[in-house]
């Protein structure tokens, strides 16, 4: 090749084609998909919890995108129906994830509605899921002699309770749990995409 303009122009053209397909077309067609009826906006506690989810990188091990029945048995694992674009209308950014080192969490609020289970599981995953390789998050809790009024005490299985102490959830843990409990896409979808 002898001409740098040809080179750069050619290079930018190929990139433009790719950008048109993967960014511009989705921008025009699915960016502003309205929420599916039944999807509620997050409360401020849930949004704070979502930030915790991002901060601690939960999405590097957990996906939020059950796949269609015909493709993979995600629904039969109780992970929920296949999601559609409208399920993510309030998700900024969406947290689809690329790993299932742990299970999909798009419907964890349905599978596991208990605050105490979530708190205990974050404090020590192996208290509830023997053999789990999820990290413990002790820094979201405080271990003290006794709790103050209005604080949430975590009740753990006997083997996992620190002796003579109580485990108190910090606000970050409570926010995170309220986000996890909000993960519920069990309402029906009636748009074209889900019928296929």
């Amino acid at each position: 090749m002898h001409s740098e303009t040809r080179l750069i122009f050619g290079g930018l053209t190929t990139l433009a084609v790719a950008t048109a397909a993967l960014v511009v077309l989705p921008y025009l067609t699915v960016r502003d998909t309205p929420p599916v009826a039944g999807l509620k906006p997050y409360t401020s506690a849930q949004l704070r919890g979502r930030t915790q989810y991002i901060q601690h990188g939960c999405m590097y091990c957990h996906s939020q995108q059950p796949r269609a029945q015909a493709f993979a048995p995600d629904a039969r694992r109780a992970w929920g129906r296949a999601t559609v674009a409208g399920d993510y209308a309030y998700d900024d950014p969406p947290l689809l994830g690329t790993m299932r080192t742990g299970p999909d969490l798009m419907n964890i609020g349905v599978r596991q509605p208990s605050d105490q289970w979530h708190l205990g599981h974050l404090y020590q995953p192996r208290a509830y899921a023997p053999g789990s390789i999820m990290p413990a998050y002790p820094f979201l809790f405080e271990v003290r002699d006794k709790a103050e009024a209005g604080e949430t005490v975590v009740t753990l299985p006997p083997d996992f309770t620190p002796k003579g102490k109580v485990v108190v959830a910090r606000p970050e843990a409570l926010d995170l749990v309220s986000y996890l409990k909000s993960l519920d896409r069990s309402y029906p979808v009636v748009d074209a995409a889900s019928v296929n």
Partner: peptide
Amino acid sequence: AFFYGQVGGHHLVGGPVPAWL
């Protein structure tokens, strides 16, 4: 230059994105 730019969608196989993509 041409093909590589358009392969990103293979990270979303089975995901809630347009099937054509």
